[in-house]
């Protein structure tokens, strides 16, 4: 695996923009190798009571990834994981030379619900697709698809994946109504993003699931209904162009 990740906002965005400008100039003399790739990404929420935050979909080079298991996540990923807000993540994508394009779904994808999101890029060589979304009735749970090679898909063809869930490792899993932004946090402060990192360790890992008040966690605002198992989502990627 590569260690390529999103970099912090300061500095790298300017550098990235500079490189993109250079890249565009370079592409001008090499445009015959570039094509338009367009995909429709359909995500279905397979959980009982965990709405998904607006889904961020990214087309990128093989050496970019949204986050790496066992490593600290970027602030953009932390913000999705804790609040569901993907704006910083997509800003970082827009300024990263290894990412072609990034888009957000229109809104929340509720339990049992689906959304189809279109994403396209002018690119050559290998094109990978990733997506990230928060399970909003949690402290910092994500579902994600990481670095699927979509450049070999023929127009009209599709492939399907089942997604598991991850803990961003950025927020303690108190499950309290003060710290969960979703609708399960009745009567609480519903805090979203908080830059403090206070989970058992500051690394992404496979989510252990929620404990809930029904299973004895006194601080939890969640009930048994908010539990889930893997897979938490189904994704179909269809190439349109």
């Amino acid at each position: 695996m590569t260690n390529s990740k999103l970099f912090s906002r300061s500095g790298w965005r300017l550098i990235g923009m500079g490189l993109i400008s250079l890249g565009l100039v370079a592409c001008g003399s090499d445009s015959d190798t570039e094509s338009t790739y367009e995909y429709e990404v359909t995500i279905t929420n397979l959980t009982a009571a965990q709405p998904f935050s607006p889904v961020a979909v990214v087309l990128h080079k093989e050496n970019w990834q949204a986050f790496e298991l066992g490593e600290s996540v970027s602030e953009g990923v932390e913000m999705i994981a804790e609040s569901g807000d993907n704006s910083l993540f997509l800003q970082d994508v827009a300024s990263n030379e290894d990412a072609y394009s990034g888009v957000s779904g229109a809104g929340i994808v509720g339990p049992g619900g689906s959304e189809t999101i279109s994403v396209e890029a002018q690119a050559s060589g290998t094109i990978s697709l990733s997506l990230v979304s928060m399970l909003v009735n949690t402290n910092d749970a994500l579902t994600a698809l990481q670095t699927v090679n979509v450049s070999s898909l023929d127009v009209g063809d599709a492939m399907s994946y089942r997604l598991r869930t991850y803990d961003a490792g950025t927020e303690a899993n108190s499950e309290s109504a003060d710290t969960i932004p979703g609708p399960a946090a009745v009567g609480g402060l519903r805090e979203g993003f908080n830059s403090e990192r206070d989970d058992v360790r500051d690394e992404a890992y496979v989510h252990a699931g929620v404990v809930t008040q029904d299973d004895g966690l006194a601080t939890s605002t969640l009930t048994q209904a908010h539990r889930w198992d893997n897979p938490a989502a189904a994704v179909t990627i269809r190439r349109i162009q």
């Binding site: 598991r164 869930t165 496979v206 252990a208 404990v211 299973d215 004895g216 966690l217 893997n230």
Partner: peptide, 23 residues
């Protein structure tokens, strides 16, 4: 299963730390 009682309860396993989902 685990529990949240460090000095009693049914289990000596911590439900907030030692659970997992596959993989």
């Amino acid at each position: 299963l685990g529990d949240t009682d460090a000095t009693g309860g049914l289990s000596d396993i911590d439900s907030t730390l030692h659970r997992w989902l596959n993989p």
